[in-house]
């Protein structure tokens, strides 16, 4: 019966962590009015969470789009359908790859940095110091980071998709000889605003909430030692990636019935 006890312990521990994470999320939301009174806190985090992630997103978007253009061309040309390359590239990016790959890259770049920063602030007693200065660290430190993550993710995903479309265009039109007008015209006629674009944006907003929440919680809940911070950053990337991939399936099933 040891396995049953171990299973129970894991279940209880998971429930406790989920409870703590939920309470932290509510506490961060309660910090919104305070953050709105100090918009510079949000702007600083938009810079570190969003702007500093642009480069990796941009480069990845271009290369993913180029690969899509190349692979798509080889498959579609078998059926003489290379004219629809633009649709294939754009639909893949806007519906799936844009939000998902952006979220995975966000978790690796910004999420791990958030966890490490908050974990180190905890380990060096900066968060306790704020508390003793009568400043709520959940409102002052965590809320701006959460909101910055939520606002950044759809913008980064949009950037990823746009640059990916241009990457696909460069390979398809520039290198493989697909007609330029057909590439764009097919895309324009086949990509639906609400079905494709809006659903993609909804996905990226959901991923933004989940990735930022996980990163902040892991940092805030970590054991305040070097090993604890290291574990927290690792868990951030692993949990965020799994959550994004799992949620992507659920959202896709709900959106594209």
């Amino acid at each position: 019966m040891d396995w049953l006890a171990a299973l129970g312990r894991v279940g209880l521990s998971f429930a406790a962590r989920l409870g703590r994470a939920s309470l932290l999320f509510v506490a961060m939301l309660r910090g919104l009015p305070e953050m709105l009174r100090r918009p510079h806190l949000l702007l600083e985090q938009l810079l570190s969470v969003g702007v500093l992630t642009v480069l990796i997103i941009a480069v990845s978007g271009i290369f993913v789009g180029m690969v899509l253009g190349l692979q798509g061309y080889y498959i579609l040309s078998r059926f003489g359908a290379e004219a629809t390359l633009g649709v294939m590239v754009a639909a893949s990016l806007v519906r799936e790859l844009g939000p998902v790959v952006t979220a995975l890259l966000f978790a690796g770049r910004a999420g791990s940095a958030l966890s490490a920063e908050i974990g180190l602030m905890k380990a060096t007693e900066q968060l306790s110091g704020l508390e003793m200065m009568a400043v709520n660290p959940e409102h002052r430190v965590l809320t701006p980071r959460l909101i910055a993550g939520i606002l950044s993710m759809p913008l980064l995903a949009a950037l990823f998709s746009v640059l990916g479309v241009y990457g696909g265009w460069f390979v398809g039109v520039g290198l493989l000889g697909v007609d330029d007008g057909t590439y764009w015209a097919q895309m324009q006629s086949q990509i639906d605003w609400s079905d494709d674009v809006v659903n993609g944006v909804i996905k990226s907003v959901v991923f933004g909430v989940v990735c930022s929440w996980i990163a902040i919680f892991q940092g805030y809940d970590c054991v305040p030692t070097s090993e604890g911070v290291s574990r927290a950053t690792t868990r951030t990337v692993v949990h965020s990636s799994l959550a994004v991939l799992g949620l992507d399936f659920v959202l896709t099933a709900l959106m594209f019935k």
Binding site: T124, E125, Q126, S128, G129, E131, M132
Partner: peptide
């Protein structure tokens, strides 16, 4: 109450 209490942490706890 905390505004009337100061605390000096072992590490200093300065905002880096």
């Amino acid at each position: 109450l905390r505004m009337r209490m100061g605390m000096l942490f072992q590490s200093g706890a300065l905002l880096t």
